[in-house]
Design a protein around this nucleic acid. Structure first.
Length: 779
RNA sequence: UGCCCUAUAGCUCAAUUGGCAGAGCGCCUGACUCUGGAUCAGGAGGUUUCAGGUUCGAAUCCUGGUAGGGCAACCA
């Protein structure tokens, strides 16, 4: 019953939804840009435990490699000896394996590349691309400037190659104290991207490295080591989180300086945040160090080790990663999705058993004193396609859950109360006749009668509202149950007022240890690592650490969905989800969108815009944009001289501008004359605007004469009604149900039909005419 | 200040590149005659942030607002 393997009860879809990274990879594979290979890497720094956020990255990197028949390297990015440790290396490997991924032979350490990296540093020096700076740390910071002002070059920036090389070698040899010198790239001290203002590549640090010992006293920085490690390993797609996008120019600069194509490329995706948790190393460390949790594997922690200890199946995490997906926008992930997936996995993995957490004695007055009936109880509900039963003893004295009895039942209470009936799961219906209390008035026992004709499965007509779980007294097994709640009480624990911290948002009593629990007899055979559903309560995991045969310990992995708790408002768990605060400010944004959509112009531009407007008869809006952007303005005027100006303005403002964003005007092969010719072809009806866009794309990429492109690719639009009619009837025949839906009023399908007919004519149909024909055919 | 990203169902996100606005969660109803909670089926829920524009056709492209987020180390 132990299910710590990577196997999943439910099959994981082989086809995952596409995303921008998949598109990049597929494009690279198609064009052969990476030599037909996909090599990714997961590069943790061994200075902390992996958490759910890392798990998402692991699933992404390994998953992508697997889907595209490539491979994924596990590389420890261990270039900072002060914080790193072998303990974390081992923990990370254990966690990744547990998640179900395998790096095969490809286990690497950046620290194994120190020699190679150093050689490359020397090469940069020799090439004049790097220099040794002798400014202090403070001075370097000062010289770097600020976000608003350019930096100034260090006085050491122009040192000669020989001197630089000599200094670098002596740094390496340990001749200087820490901070005396650093190696910096020579890039651009005025760059608006501060990372390009001569970034530091190597620093002196007399610190013993956990793997390399005292071999080195200079250590490379991430910005140097990471791209080059990627290059050394032949990584093709180096995926990292969005915050590194500012580093990409540096990544490219370094790899270009030292490697020939095909070379690795960095792509960034957005990090995913999770509700009700924190994930930063510093904060997790505080939770552990200050004793808010019991350790790195406390089930309330977001670490992978904690999820394992908690009893979460690895497949739930993999499915979570798939469903959460990947995007460029930072997102807050709804943790209830994760909880749902955990339940969904466990539903097929965890046999049902009965355990009473807080027992209340029940004596069945009409059941013989010494008689025990052994009932056959199924381990699985009808919908789980698994067989198996266990014998459950039934006798005169039982225990039920204290919460399942109410002396004064609230409205809608379906369970036991004085005079009321309830079904005992797998057994009989009982009625409560008498409530026994102690001197304090606490209920200590219920005296009930059994309806002997109501046995489960044999009582066709007998229906009562509630069914509760129970345990027979003589065979009950005492167990300990550890109930965990969400660690934090609000979705975003970092969102606290000034003066407070995430620690002020801890859920009070998020761990409850119940030592009074009684389990059904069959649990006497349970072993550490087993999973069960304690019926009506949740999924539990026999704690692999503290479980002993003489003292069984069960950790609650997750509660069941509980509508009653929500309805009654008596939820004992504090973590019941509240609606997240709605996005602020929506309303105020709606209020006022003032003024016409025209770029802000200075006086000269205003004059120019007026001139363009009257000279060419174009809309002032367009004129304003062209006036504020001389490059586009010039292009427009040259083209407008030989074509209809308003159309030209449209093309320049909409299409040309868009393309320019991607590559810059100088890199585009389109000329004012060719654009003018293209506009002419649209004006005279040769091209539909759709076809014209195709031609335009080719003009941008390769240049040429529009009419020649049209001829070569046969792009003339179809204006012949009969041809369109036959295309339309083909489409309508292919989709009879949509035709019916359209005729039934789903007019939104018109777009679908147009699209299909367009496809059928290679996009060459005249759209207006096509629409007319379609409308006639569908009427 | 600069650079980058985002805004779609109550919530978290998709939408095959301009052609039917969807999924999961949550919610409601029903079924399962043995889980109030498992499971299954069905349902409700939309002016795709706003204003313009391009287009036969815009969630998607262009312009301009508005709101929100990320990043700017001798850490990684």
């Amino acid at each position: 019953m132990s299910t710590d393997s990577a196997s999943s009860a439910t099959p994981e879809p082989a086809e995952r939804p596409s995303n921008f990274l998949r598109q990049i990879i597929e494009e690279d594979l198609r064009t052969g840009a990476t030599g037909g290979r996909v090599v990714t890497r997961f590069p943790p720094e061994p200075n902390g435990y992996l958490h759910l956020g890392h798990a998402m990255a692991v699933c992404l990197q390994f998953g992508l490699a697997k889907d595209y028949r490539g491979r994924c390297h596990l590389r420890f990015d261990d270039t900072n000896p002060e914080t790193e440790d072998m303990e974390y290396v081992e923990a990370a490997q254990r966690d990744i394996r547990w998640l179900g991924f395998d790096w095969g032979e490809h286990l690497y350490f950046a620290s194994d590349y120190f020699e190679a990296l150093y050689d490359m540093a020397e090469r940069l020096v020799v090439d004049g691309r790097a220099y040794v700076d002798s400014l202090s740390e403070e001075q370097i910071r000062e010289y770097r400037g600020t976000v608003t002002e350019a930096g100034r070059p260090s006085p050491f920036r122009e040192r000669g190659v020989d001197e630089n090389l000599d200094l670098l070698r002596r740094m390496r040899a340990g001749e200087f104290p820490e901070g005396a010198h650093v190696l910096r790239a020579r890039i651009d001290m005025a760059n608006p991207n501060m990372l390009l203002r001569d970034p530091v590549l190597y620093r002196i640090k007399y610190f013993e490295h956990y793997r390399r010992g005292k071999d080195w006293c200079i250590y490379p920085l991430y910005d140097f080591a990471h791209p080059l490690s990627d290059a050394i390993e032949g990584i093709t797609h180096s995926l990292c989180s969005l915050e590194f996008d500012v580093h990409r120019p540096l990544y490219d600069w370094l790899v270009d300086a030292l490697y020939e194509p095909p070379r690795p490329h960095q792509y960034e995706y957005a990090r995913r945040n999770f509700e009700y948790t924190v994930v930063s190393k510093r904060k997790l460390l505080r939770l552990v160090k200050e004793g808010h949790v019991e350790g790195w594997d406390d089930p309330r922690m977001p670490t992978i080790a904690a999820q394992r200890r908690r009893g979460v199946p690895p497949a739930a995490i993999r499915r979570f990663a798939d469903q959460v997906g990947i995007a460029k926008a930072e997102t807050m992930i709804d943790i209830s999705l994760f909880e749902h997936l955990i339940r969904d996995e466990l539903n097929h993995e965890a046999p049902r058993v009965m355990v009473v957490l807080r027992p209340l004695r029940v004596v069945l007055t009409n059941w013989p004193e010494d008689e025990t009936e052994w009932l056959d109880a199924s381990y699985w509900p009808h919908d789980v396609p698994k067989q198996g039963t266990r014998p459950v003893p039934f006798g005169r004295t039982l225990y039920i859950e204290r919460d399942d009895f109410a002396e004064v039942p609230p409205r809608g209470f379906h369970r036991l109360s004085p005079g009321a009936e309830v079904r005992l799961r797998y057994a009989y219906v009982i009625r409560c006749d008498e409530v026994v209390k102690d001197a304090d008035g606490t209920v200590v026992e219920l005296r009930c009668t059994v309806d002997l004709d109501s046995k489960s499965g044999e009582s066709a007509g007998r229906r009562v509202k509630g069914t509760i779980h129970w345990v027979e007294a003589d065979h009950a097994v005492p167990v300990e149950a550890r109930l965990y709640d969400r660690l934090f009480s609000i979705p975003d624990p970092e969102d606290v007022p000034e003066g407070q911290s995430f620690l002020d948002r801890l859920t009070p009593n998020s761990r409850e240890i119940v030592s009074t629990a009684l389990a059904e007899h069959s649990l006497s055979r349970a072993r550490a690592g087993d999973r069960f559903q304690f019926e009506r309560q949740g999924y539990f995991y026999a704690d692999p650490v503290d479980f002993r045969p003489e003292r069984p310990v069960y950790i609650r992995t997750i509660t069941l969905r509980d509508t009653w708790a929500r309805v009654s408002g008596a939820a004992e768990t504090a973590g019941t989800a509240q609606p997240a605060p709605s996005k602020a400010g929506r309303q105020s944004a709606v209020e006022e969108s003032s003024g016409p959509p025209i770029p802000a112009l200075d006086a000269d531009q205003e004059v120019e815009a007026r001139r363009l407007e009257s000279r060419w008869g174009i809309a002032f809006e367009d004129a304003a944009l062209l006036a504020s952007d001389p490059e586009l303005g010039t292009f427009f005027e040259q083209a407008a001289a030989s074509a209809e100006p308003r159309s030209v303005a449209n093309w320049v403002v909409h299409e040309l501008q868009r393309e320019r964003k991607e590559r810059g005007l100088s890199a585009m092969a389109v000329t004012p004359a060719s654009l003018a010719a293209l506009v002419g072809l649209v004006e005279d009806g040769t091209l539909s605007s759709r076809l014209a866009k195709e031609v335009f794309a080719e003009l941008v990429a390769h240049g040429g004469e529009p009419s020649a492109i049209v001829e070569r690719r046969g792009l003339v639009q179809i204006e012949d009604r009969a041809t369109l009619e036959s295309a339309v009837s083909g489409v309508l025949e292919a989709f009879p149900d949509r035709v019916a839906a359209y005729r039934a009023g789903k007019t939104g399908l018109m777009g679908f039909f147009v699209g299909q007919a367009m496809k059928a004519t290679d996009g060459k149909a005249n759209p207006q005419l096509l629409r007319e024909v379609l409308e006639a055919a569908l009427a």
